[in-house]
Amino acid sequence: MKIGDLARETGVSVRLLRYYEDQGLLTSDRTDGGHRHYTAAAPTTVTQIRTLLAAGLPTKTIRDLMPCFLGDGPELDACVQEHLQTQLQKLDSRMTDLQHARTSLSALLDASTRASQLASSRA
């Protein structure tokens, strides 16, 4: 399968497919003319990569997890559950931090709006 065919089948741009290959997430063979050729399993690999990216995992982590997929689905071997749990905890922590920042920013905006309204009413 050529890179353009893989892009059409998966809905992923040619540029991203090249990036996945550069990151060691996807492999191809090269023709004598230097064109990439992917196996029939490549669409499944791309789907698995996209699943892990959607979960917020960095490409370095994804590269390590790719061999742990069980078949063609999104299921991963039990040996990576601890790693995924750690990633989930990090995400929860970031979400908490973002919620605190949002609350602070909202309070600042409210105070600034009240001050502006008060100044306008005095004028």
Rank of each mutant, 00 (worst) to 15 (best):
K2L: 15
K2S: 09
I3M: 03
A7F: 11
R8S: 15
R8T: 10
G11H: 08
V14K: 09
R15T: 10
L16Y: 00
L17I: 13
R18D: 02
Y19Q: 02
Y20D: 10
E21P: 06
E21I: 03
D22Y: 04
D22R: 11
Q23T: 01
G24M: 08
L25P: 08
L25S: 05
L26N: 06
S28A: 15
S28N: 05
R30T: 01
G34E: 03
G34A: 05
G34Y: 09
R36A: 02
H37F: 08
H37I: 14
Y38S: 06
T39R: 15
T39F: 07
A40R: 11
A41W: 08
A42N: 09
T47V: 02
Q48W: 06
I49P: 00
I49S: 00
A55N: 04
G56Q: 11
L57Q: 03
L57E: 03
L57S: 02
T61L: 11
T61C: 05
T61M: 08
L65W: 03
L65G: 01
M66G: 08
P67L: 11
P67F: 04
G71A: 09
D72C: 03
D72N: 13
G73H: 09
G73F: 07
P74W: 12
E75A: 11
L76Q: 06
L76I: 04
L76V: 04
C79D: 11
V80E: 11
V80G: 07
Q81S: 09
E82F: 01
H83V: 12
H83D: 05
L84C: 01
Q85P: 00
T86F: 00
T86H: 05
T86Y: 01
Q89A: 13
K90F: 08
L91F: 05
L91T: 15
L91R: 12
D92W: 00
S93F: 12
R94H: 14
T96M: 08
T96N: 05
H100V: 10
A101G: 02
S104E: 13
A107D: 14
A107N: 12
L108C: 07
L109W: 02
L109M: 05
D110R: 12
D110K: 04
R114N: 10
A115S: 15
S116M: 15
Q117H: 13
Q117V: 00
Q117F: 09
L118D: 12
L118K: 12
A119T: 10
S121Y: 13
R122T: 06
